[in-house]
């Protein structure tokens, strides 16, 4: 895992040094393309996994629960932050 993060920071450095070079500007598109490949592979792993396929509906429900938790938590925190620090300025 250390090496993955190191790879990312190497990328940050390369991107920063080569800023303005045309291929660097295309890196966003390249990220999307690689993500597609990656997700195809991830899907393939899941599709080949009979046990996982059988529990797909339970997985969907758990995912909904996680999404609701993340949204609630972040929205509550943002309301607190806004009231504490920013509201006075707007008034």
């Amino acid at each position: 895992m250390f090496y993955v993060l190191l790879t990312m920071f190497a990328g940050v450095l390369v991107g920063w040094l080569l800023k303005g070079w045309k291929p660097v500007g295309l890196s966003g598109k390249a990220v999307s393309a690689v993500i597609w490949v990656m997700l195809f592979l991830l899907g393939a792993e899941i599709g080949m996994n009979r046990e996982l396929l059988r529990s797909l509906s339970s997985i969907g429900l758990q995912a909904l629960l996680f999404a609701a938790a993340g949204i609630c938590g972040s929205v509550i925190a943002s309301v607190l932050l806004y009231r504490l620090l920013f509201r006075k300025k707007a008034e």
Binding site: M8, G11, V12, V14, K19
Partner: peptide, 23 residues
């Protein structure tokens, strides 16, 4: 199914994510 190829693609992906942020 064993995710070996996925691992290589992951490194490529992380590098590109970095380039995208830095650039």
């Amino acid at each position: 199914a064993d995710g070996g190829l996925a691992k290589i693609v992951l490194y490529l992906l992380m590098f590109l994510v970095g380039v995208n942020i830095g650039g």
